[in-house]
Computed example of a mutant assay.
Amino acid sequence: MQPSAAVEQRVSTRHGYLHAKDHPGHGTPFVFLHGYPDDSTVYDKLIAQLHPHRSVSFDFLGYGQSERVQNSPVADGQRLAETEAVIDQLGLGKVILVGHDAGGPVAVEYALAHPDRVERLVLFNCYFGESPTLRFPEMIRLMGDPDLVPLTDALFADLAQRQWLLGYTATRFGYGPADDIRDRVIVPLFFGSEGQPDALDAIRAWTARLFTDLAITSELVATGKTGDLQIPVDIIFGANDPYLNSGVAEHLAGLFPNARLRSVQARHWLQWDEPEAVARLLIHDE
């Protein structure tokens, strides 16, 4: 049976509107949170493998097909509020919440705030608090350092330098020119596409919070909040990520009392690299 067409949804928030895709199906809905610098497209291959289970993906403000109004630093609690808006306005009830990259901390924060609304928390290659092996990509650190804003502005204003930075970062992650994730997901956000401007303002706004968010999540760990979360937490990591690596995965597994850690032979975007293998893990655990 072929998957039914996704229902396009427009979700209102006080910061602007979000674009969501609700893929019809049965069971507890999966809700997918993306990170940066990508958007909900990064889940398309995985969602196709999850049919006939219901899946919802959405673009955070300024990304993908959501409103392009994010031209200032992301406000405290904004990503959490956007996630709450999608789940509430779509009437999803209890969900299986999946977070990847910078969407991972948002997923954890939602689960901490609404443990009764999350049947299971799933974390793909992400972080939550400091850990001994955690490394951030050089380009992300550059954009996250407030002292380097003038340099970052100059580099990204130059199209050739912007292209070089993307290519360098892709190579560091192990992705080459033949990997379609670059053209289908990443490049449109940095250079725009037909009918859609680039998302540089949104990328800069979220990455500007890098070290602030790291401090916030570290404080939640230090105060024992994650240890109080009793819901099942599945940590599924691409084993070949040099930044959000297996050491980070092990650190995450130690934060939650009901955590289980699994590994997939994939790079940072495991849901794109190995969607069938990841889908089997998700469905088996439902």
Rank of each mutant, 00 (worst) to 15 (best):
A5I: 11
A20N: 07
K21C: 09
G25V: 10
H26N: 14
G27C: 04
T28F: 00
P29V: 05
F32R: 04
F32K: 05
Y36D: 08
D39I: 02
S40Y: 15
Y43F: 15
D44S: 08
I47K: 00
P52D: 07
R54S: 01
S55E: 02
V56I: 09
F58Q: 07
D59K: 07
Y63A: 09
S66G: 03
E67D: 05
D76L: 13
Q78A: 11
A81G: 11
E84N: 07
D88P: 12
G93W: 05
V98A: 00
G99D: 09
H100T: 01
G103M: 09
V118E: 03
E119T: 09
N125R: 01
Y127C: 06
F128R: 02
L134P: 04
M143N: 04
P146L: 05
D147G: 11
D147R: 15
R162I: 10
L166I: 12
G174T: 05
P177N: 09
D183S: 15
L189D: 13
G192D: 14
P197R: 03
A199I: 06
R204S: 08
R204D: 14
T207L: 12
E219C: 15
V221R: 13
G227I: 03
G227S: 11
D228N: 13
V233C: 07
D234Y: 14
F237M: 08
G238T: 04
D241Q: 07
L244E: 14
L244H: 13
H251M: 15
L252I: 02
G254E: 03
A259F: 02
S263L: 12
R267C: 13
H268K: 04
W272P: 04
R280A: 05
L282N: 00
